[in-house]
Simulated assay, not measured.
Amino acid sequence: MVSFTRLIGLLTALALLSGCERQDAGPLDQQLYIWQRQWIPAHEAALRDSRNDFSTLRVLALQAFPQVGSSRARIDPQLLKQDGRPLIAVIRLDGQLKALDQDQLTAQILQLLEDWRGLGLTLAGVEIDHDAGNARLPAYAGFLSHLRSALPATLPLSITALPAWLDSPQLPALLATVDSSVLQVHAVSDPRRGLFDPQQAQRWAKAWGRISDKPFYLALPAYGVALLPDAGGAPVVESEVSLERAGERRELLADPLQLSALAKALREDRPAHLAGLIWFRLPLANDRRAWSLTTLRAVARGDSLVGKPVLAFSEKSGLYDIHLENPGNLDNPWPARLIVKAQDCEGADALAGYALQQTADLLTFTRLRDGRLPAGGQRAIGWARCANIDQGGSHVDP
Score class of each variant (00 low, 15 high):
L113P: 04
N332Y: 02
L175E: 02
Q38F: 03
A254I: 02
G302S: 08
E346T: 10
D361M: 07
V396I: 11
C20Q: 06
Q200C: 03
G125Q: 09
D49E: 14
Q378C: 02
R92A: 08
K308S: 13
A13E: 01
G120L: 13
L324Q: 04
Q23A: 09
V188K: 05
I40P: 02
L243D: 11
V310K: 13
L220E: 00
A201H: 00
F196E: 01
R281K: 12
L351M: 12
P66I: 07
L166E: 07
P41L: 07
R245G: 08
P41A: 04
I339Q: 08
L121D: 04
L162N: 01
R369K: 11
P77S: 05
V225L: 11
S168K: 07
L155H: 07
T295F: 02
L262E: 00
D83G: 08
F196W: 00
A275P: 00
A89G: 03
A176G: 07
A64E: 14
A42T: 03
P77K: 13
L157A: 07
I75R: 01
S189L: 15
Q23F: 14
G133I: 11
A342W: 04
Q38N: 06
P156K: 04
A380F: 07
D370F: 15
N329V: 05
G393F: 12
H395A: 03
A25R: 15
A254Q: 02
H273R: 13
Q67C: 02
D397V: 11
D361V: 08
L47W: 01
